[in-house]
Design a protein around this nucleic acid. Structure first.
Lengths: 192, 192
DNA sequence: AATATCATAGTACGGACGTAATACAATGAC
DNA sequence: GTCATTGTATTACGTCCGTACTATGATATT
């Protein structure tokens, strides 16, 4: 073991993070391995020392992105106010305009739905971890129902942000985000 | 003018529809021109007699898909019950499992957000036509606010369906769809 | 039958993923 | 301190598929 113990691990993490940004910006299909490696300060050949295939990378990127999202969420207060802050920053013009730094689901969800089951399995598991974090801030007792409510809330947030990104009418997009916040907050207090 | 007057127009339409299905199934970046032409019963070379580029096709496909969606929606009763039927069929397991025949926004929205402004412009214009159809069934007087409410409702539907497609847990996905219907219907009566 | 129109097959070129063989860098042993 | 060893990255290549385009051939109507 000649190199420092976690040199390779650190490089791998650099690739995963570079790929996260690149995927969210250009899409999974839109981003090539060579571009990702270049972003990470490496060349394409080195890729296969770290991952079996691009699909292997995709699964690892999604898991990493969701863990980061969960970690950032954990930095918020662990009650309703933290959830509110999360919603407001999620449905903000900044988040809309900085997709490379933003939520992987908002950037990639329809593409994720087209990935192989193994990849979607990883996504599902890690997403549910985020969802359970949301549930913990809802202080509800009915576990299963709270989970689907949290998923529905998240669906609203993802869909609204994607719409805001697709619309060319800036004013309309801003209005949509603002209305999305109001609607999401309403769902917190008053699920269907 | 030797060929029947609208022969080329009909062929073009066939290409647009084949591309619509293919894009929704494989993604825009995931579907090649040759595959689309093959689906339409043609070969790749004929493509450029009909479209300037793939991006030109994309814009035409999105416009066509949204017009079809609007047309189908118009077949529903022009009151609240039509909207309810739309929501129920949208957030159904069938729609989740048949994405090639389904809503273009649910299948492609995050990719649309990454297309050039000209393409997004076409999408925005045609989507607003669908949105205004929703608004007309809300019997509300406040035009602008009703539009953002309709967009928010649509965002909820798109995001929920995308989530349902990405999750590998079938039961959870079904529950999410059911909860999405309840939540969407609630938003109809009781916007934030 | 003549001809305007449309589709085909084939080509160019680039970029995709993946796989070598080669060069480099960093440590532990002498 | 030098060197050999091992792990890591580079360069180069193979192959396939992407978009884009053209010259050739088929088609359908007057």
């Amino acid at each position: 073991m000649r190199y420092s113990k976690d040199h390779k691990q650190a490089t791998r993490q650099r690739i995963v993070q570079a790929a996260g940004r690149r995927f969210k910006q250009d899409g999974i299909d839109g981003a090539g391995v060579a571009t990702v490696m270049s972003d990470a300060g490496l060349t394409n050949g080195a890729f296969y020392a770290h991952f079996e295939s691009k699909e292997d990378l995709v699964a690892n990127v999604l898991a990493d992105q969701l863990r980061v999202q969960r970690h950032d969420f954990d930095a918020q207060p662990s009650d309703r106010s933290g959830l509110e802050a999360f919603i407001r920053s999620y449905l903000s013009p900044q988040h809309r305009d900085q997709c490379a730094d933003g939520c992987p689901s908002a950037a990639l969800l329809d593409e994720i739905g087209r990935r192989p089951a193994a990849t979607r399995q990883v996504f599902t598991a890690e997403l549910m971890s985020v969802i359970d974090d949301i549930v913990s801030r809802l202080d509800r007792t009915d576990g299963v129902a709270a989970r689907t409510d949290a998923l529905t809330l998240f669906g609203l947030m993802v869909g609204t942000l994607q719409l805001a990104r697709a619309l060319t009418d800036r004013d309309l997009s801003d209005q949509l985000l603002a209305r999305g916040v109001e609607t999401a907050l309403k769902l917190l207090d008053d699920p269907a």
